[in-house]
Design a protein around this nucleic acid. Structure first.
Lengths: 172, 172
DNA sequence: ATTCAAACGTTCGATTTCAAATGATTTTTT
DNA sequence: AAAAAATCATTTGAAATCGAACGTTTGAAT
């Protein structure tokens, strides 16, 4: 991989350190910048938008998913957020404690627990989401619109690729 | 934004739900796929590579940073990982407990704490890193090489953009 | 119909995470 | 030089996170 001038000093130093090892440097670049971008994004949203409403990134994401999908099973939330079911249980307990979510056992299958928003929860999402989206727009605005479209496409392809390999694992 | 056929059902449903609201849908797409890709990546690496060595994603990242930068200050680790100093303290305590890291107070400035690898820590990084990188390559391999280069470039631009806005905050 | 296996959510213990408060040290101001 | 301000890592308390173990419920197999 050719050295490019837009590499950060940190990234250059990492590359210097691993050069000579049998390492896929391009994959390393993709992964480390993916992780770093996602963490900076999370940090920005928590500090600039969510903190004043006493919401963590995870709780807001959970609220948002429930807002989109109405009464939804615990396992579906877990899958959609790429977290464990245990984590979702924990998040729902906290959200319920704050009066934003209600849980009820499914009538047709008593193993399932359905989560839905309370009216306070709905108000919260509809109040916070536009500000959250403004934070998303701030990040995306670093790129041109063409670049944003391309970035979304590439990330979508990566996500879809993960999904396929997960399905294959389950099938195996 | 035109509806594209490679949208997941979930993404389409979200877009349907927010259509009509004054929302930047492209930014929403970028952000949600960025977050989802990063979480799937983390999950994959923890399950397929790190778990067998009793390492979390964060501990490995911390070990790796110390491996790259030799004796390094707590605050530098925090900055490079986009986590708080308190988190780094916690991670270093755990890593020290497992004999992978050693901490010592700086001689020139007694406020600073320097972290460095023990020989067990060095062995661990050099053993795990190639497998970790293989996981990175698995993800990157979902894309063509041209796409990988473009994704790395776009993410790098986003990261750099965050850095600039952070510097402006500090300066203000 | 009974037994067996699978699936679900929860609990448990350990780690990760953060903001705020704290104590120690250094730097700046007076 | 003394006092004040700034910086650093740590502690504290609360929440998020996971894998493993568990109890309940459902579906499948006999």
């Amino acid at each position: 991989m050719p050295i490019q001038e837009d590499f950060s000093r940190a990234e250059l130093e990492v590359m210097r350190r691993v050069s000579g090892l049998p390492i896929d440097e391009l994959a390393l670049s993709v992964a480390s910048n993916l992780w770093r971008a996602s963490q900076l994004f999370k940090q920005k949203l928590e500090r600039e938008v969510l903190r004043e409403h006493s919401l963590s990134f995870s709780s807001f994401s959970t609220l948002f998913i429930i807002w989109i999908w109405g009464p939804i099973e615990t396992r579906e939330i877990a899958k959609s957020q790429a977290v464990s079911k245990a984590t979702v249980t924990s998040l729902l307990i906290t959200l319920e404690k704050h009066g934003l979510v209600k849980r009820k056992v499914s009538k047709t299958d008593k193993r399932l627990v359905l989560a839905e928003l309370t009216s306070a929860g709905r108000t919260m999402v509809e109040w916070v989401f536009p500000k959250f989206n403004q934070g998303e727009a701030d990040m995306a605005g670093i790129l041109t619109e063409t670049e944003q479209l391309e970035l979304a496409r590439l990330l979508r392809k990566v996500v879809a690729g993960f999904q396929i390999s997960l399905e294959q694992e389950v099938a195996a």
